[in-house]
Nucleic acid binder design. Structure first.
Lengths: 147, 147
DNA sequence: TATTGTTATACTCTATAACTATA
DNA sequence: TATAGTTATAGAGTATAACAATA
């Protein structure tokens, strides 16, 4: 009988909470979570489909559909690779970049509010441990830092 | 230029990692994440549909479909409430209980391994902070502790 | 009338398998 | 042959709106 949640239960519940906040911000911007993630991943630089597959951990056909829907919304565009005739690169459009930026800013605000119930030093400790876990497991940059 | 991830980015990436591990364990048991969550929520006691709606943060029609699929697999059963002729209670079957227990145990192991790269005292600190955030936000028990 | 739950419908997300085009 | 990407198909998950039954 744990006086306090174990690590596993704490992680699952924390994940549930973060997902809820993330999904809510997505909805406010007319995005679904996978769509938002795609925009975030492509924010820094255009990426090949074959590169996005391992990053987003999707099958290539799933990615095709996701990019289709996001492209139809006008937020990304497919560009043929000049080096490899088979390859396709996905890049943000201007409106996609604006959306990605406001989404990122608002999601960051909400998540910061979420942990604001704790003193700043506890937040810092928490962030550094989370960072350590993430680094240890080569988690892709599915959410960009403010630049 | 952050020397280290901000809290928000760390949380999103940590969530991505936990989801990956959780989803993988689900697959190994023939479950989807929402199905596993339903089993976990119903583990402690039978629950009404109307009670599961806020707990799982789904619309009632979404819950109807989820319970349909899990019931078809033979893991839960619907029971009419004796007190209220409109109400339906969802409870685990025997095989559902076995599945929920092995799922919970394995997911716990995997998540513990995930953080085992850190010294035990750091894990403990991390767990207690996660617990604090979760408590502050009334996150439902979507994952049970070992009993 | 209000609440509980289901049905109808539409769309997103995902995977597997088969296919096309290029390397 | 191998790789990059799409298409076809099927099923899960979700929401909105309309509905039936009970309170």
């Amino acid at each position: 009988m744990p006086e306090e949640l174990g690590v596993a239960a704490g992680l699952v519940r924390l994940t549930f909470l973060v997902q809820s906040v993330y999904a809510e911000v997505c909805r406010e911007h007319g995005l679904t979570p996978p769509q938002a993630q795609l925009l975030c991943v492509v924010t820094d630089a255009p990426r090949r489909m074959s590169d996005l597959v391992p990053t987003m951990r999707l099958e290539k056909s799933s990615l095709t559909g996701l990019v289709d829907r996001v492209e139809r919304k006008g937020w990304v565009r497919r560009v043929a690779s000049p080096e490899d005739g088979r390859a396709v690169t996905v890049e943000l459009t201007a409106s996609g970049r604006r959306l990605a930026e406001t989404f990122r800013a608002q999601a960051t605000d909400r998540l910061n509010e979420m942990v604001a119930c704790m003193p700043p030093d506890v937040c810092t400790t928490f962030a550094s441990i989370a960072d350590r876990i993430v680094s240890e497991h080569a988690v892709p940059a599915v959410f960009p830092d403010a630049s």
